[in-house]
């Protein structure tokens, strides 16, 4: 992290309306599907907030409300105190287009000119392209760009209007490590200059690299809203797989367990915040086990833990409902 939150807050005093983004009691339905259920979220100027959640959790719907593309069924959404559906409120907002959404026949420079032309004081296109290493591609049609180049352009487009808030929807999904690092640096640089960032991701790693504060969304509701460290402690589980005759699901430190699909019943999958402690305990207690495997739990696996059991019937992405239900 290159940014210092205290310095930013000093250099850019809060606006009179306070929050950069204020979402209060918002519900949005699409037919029978409740995409957001009574969601509230405030983002102060200069904050960098990660919206974390599995695919389909409601993250993008929330961003589309903040960017004025949709209206909430109930509740209010405010951008610097204004209604984001009013075009004037959006002059200080930057949004990334989806990578696949660039008009394929237009050239890189033309798209930057077009988007920049909507803002009163845009970054001049040559300067913008230079900053994102796109200068050589200025005359190339966007349809001919690689995935990484499209992402770079998408993020450049979100910053062309010198916004005070940017919404980044899955900014680096599917990029290789170096491309991802370069974009993360650009986002950090923007934030260091006082910008407010609201980004979504279903990768813990990305949120971890950028955000200070993390809001966990699942099935349309906010499940956690806390500092990065606090959320990491809750979702950064280790997955321990081993074969043992004894049922270890109630062992101390095991937050959740399930049998492994297609394996004998002694094969167990345990989720724990600290795999070292668990394994040491098992060894010390002389528990018989073999074929030990340990890796970090995916976010989906971690979410199965965070989601309140009284909500709807189980549908964890990586396991069949029946098995989930049986274990619980």
């Amino acid at each position: 992290m290159s940014a210092e939150p205290t310095a930013e807050t000093l250099s850019r005093p809060p606006t009179t309306s306070g929050e950069a983004v204020a979402v209060h009691g918002v519900t949005r339905r699409f037919g029978d599907v409740v995409a957001l259920d009574d969601v509230s979220l405030d983002v102060g100027p200069g904050e960098i907030v990660g919206l974390l959640g599995p695919n389909g959790a409601g993250k993008s719907t929330l961003l589309s409300l903040v960017s004025g593309q949709r209206r909430p069924d109930t509740g209010t959404v405010r951008l610097f105190g204004g209604d984001p559906r009013d075009a004037r409120s959006r002059t200080r907002l930057g949004v990334t287009p989806q990578e696949t959404g660039l008009p394929p026949t237009l050239r890189v420079g033309e798209v930057a000119d077009f988007v920049g032309g909507h803002f009163p004081d845009p970054v001049p296109t040559p300067e913008l392209l230079e900053q994102f290493g796109l200068t050589d591609l200025a005359r190339k049609q966007t349809g001919a760009l690689s995935g990484g180049q499209k992402r770079r352009l998408a993020i450049a487009l979100s910053l062309v209007g010198r916004p005070r808030v940017v919404l980044l929807d899955e900014p680096t999904t599917g990029l290789d490590v170096s491309a991802r690092q370069a974009l993360w640096d650009a986002i950090r640089q923007y934030h260091a200059g006082g910008g407010t960032v609201l980004l979504t991701s279903h990768y813990l790693e990305e949120v971890q690299a950028l955000a200070r504060r993390v809001v966990v969304i699942d099935r349309g509701a906010v499940r956690a809203d806390d500092s990065l460290d606090a959320v990491l402690r809750r979702v950064a589980l280790r997955r321990v797989v081993l074969t043992a005759p004894a049922d270890l699901s109630t062992w101390a430190g095991v937050v959740r367990s399930r049998p492994v699909d297609g394996a004998p019943p002694e094969r167990q999958e345990l989720f724990t915040p600290d795999a070292d402690v668990l394994v040491r305990d098992l060894v010390v207690s002389d528990v018989e086990f073999r074929d030990l495997e340990i890796r970090g739990a995916s976010l989906e696996e971690a979410f199965a833990e965070m989601v309140a059991p009284e909500s709807t019937p189980e549908s964890t992405p990586e396991s069949s409902p029946s098995i989930e239900g049986a274990v619980r």
């Binding site: 960017s67 409120s89 949004v95 287009p97 989806q98 959404g101 008009p103 209007g161």
Partner: peptide, 14 residues
């Protein structure tokens, strides 16, 4: 149907 359309709608223009 193009994903660019919602993006254009988010720009500061009615």
């Amino acid at each position: 149907q193009l994903p660019f359309d919602p993006f254009v709608r988010s720009l500061p223009a009615g």
